[in-house]
């Protein structure tokens, strides 16, 4: 390897190789995000997006004094927690089961990854039917065990739980495979010595599997957190006509939906940019907090 690298005769070629990636990324990835901060200091009307008026921090002042922002932040947080935590726990459990010597291994893996191949839109449309108040299958099933029909859409907790079901359904199999990959790279002798020490299956899981998976778990937590802060399609489509509000009473309006509503229904692109930039800052902070917390805990545990 080092022989190849030591050759200095490559000239500008390496830069040409990486240039397309960085150029496209700079133009359509980095620049728009940074420019969002600039737009957020202006008033821009969707009906005339090519004109903008400087308003300074006015958009942020309005945003932080708006109940709808805090409502969306809270919803994003609760939906994030109730969809991410069970999702990752279930995924870990499934991965553990998939790690046994199994017949039909490939079948199980592919079947569990099917939801991942289903689009947000398709999944949400199917589930919003299943969660229907009057004719939904879930209420019908609940009825079989004597539970009264639940108006999933209109309650805060019921709707958020329905959304977390959709999100969990789509991502559980994917995360299980990530964990499974991690588990399979755990050196076998760790299990052997644990078995020799008389560790039960549960103890093996707890004291061998989980610690070995730490980097993978941290990775999935970070990725899921970033995903959770941006949740958009599920609440939008679950709400049907009121989707852009996140339900008629904004009971499940997330930050992503708020951005869309302010920009494309209320025509306030500058204000929506303030929402986007705030989300960006929240993501950066959340990732940093996640990683430091995890690092510290593990150092303490180690």
């Amino acid at each position: 390897m080092f022989k190849a690298r030591r050759r200095a005769g490559q000239g500008s070629a390496p830069y040409l190789f990486v240039a397309p990636f960085f150029l496209v990324f700079a133009a359509f990835g980095l620049f728009p995000i940074l420019y969002t901060a600039w737009v957020s200091l202006h008033a821009v009307d969707l009906q005339n997006p090519n004109e903008s008026t400087w308003v300074g921090l006015e958009n942020y002042r309005k945003l932080f004094s708006s109940d709808f922002f805090w409502n969306a932040l809270e919803n994003t947080f609760t939906i994030g927690v109730i969809s991410t935590v069970p999702q990752l726990c279930i995924a870990l459990g499934i991965a553990h089961l998939l790690n046994y010597r199994l017949r039909g291994r490939t079948f199980f893996r592919v079947a569990m990854l099917m939801p991942y191949a289903t689009s947000v839109a398709a999944a949400t449309l199917v589930f919003s039917g299943l969660f229907g108040r009057d004719f939904g299958m879930i209420n019908w099933l609940l009825g079989q065990v004597g539970v009264n029909p639940v108006d999933w859409d209109s309650g805060r907790w019921t709707s958020q739980n329905a959304l977390s079901t959709i999100i969990t359904w789509r991502w559980v199999g994917y995360n299980a495979l990530i964990y499974l990959a991690g588990m399979q790279s755990v050196p076998a002798d760790l299990y052997e010595s644990a078995a020799i020490d008389g560790a039960s299956r549960w103890q093996q899981f707890r004291y061998v599997t989980i610690p070995s998976l730490r980097p993978t778990i941290l990775f999935t937590i970070v990725v899921s957190t970033i995903g959770a802060i941006q949740v958009f399609g599920e609440p939008l489509l679950f709400g049907g006509v009121s989707g852009h509000l996140g339900g008629a009473g904004r009971q499940y309006q997330t930050l992503g939906v708020l951005l869309y509503d302010e920009g494309w229904f209320n025509y306030k692109l500058g204000y929506a940019a303030a929402v986007a930039w705030t989300m960006f800052v929240i993501i950066v902070v959340a990732v940093l907090v996640n990683t430091t917390l995890a690092r510290r805990r593990w150092r303490n545990a180690a």
């Binding site: 209109s154 509000l245 008629a248 009473g249």
Partner: peptide
């Protein structure tokens, strides 16, 4: 309409529904 709907489906207090509606209108 959403304000009235919340009174119908979620038994929201009418005064609160009115205030919410005002907030929604001012926001838009």
């Amino acid at each position: 309409n959403n304000g009235l709907l919340s009174i119908e489906t979620q038994k929201t207090d009418p005064d609160k529904a009115w205030k919410d509606t005002m907030k929604n209108v001012e926001n838009l």
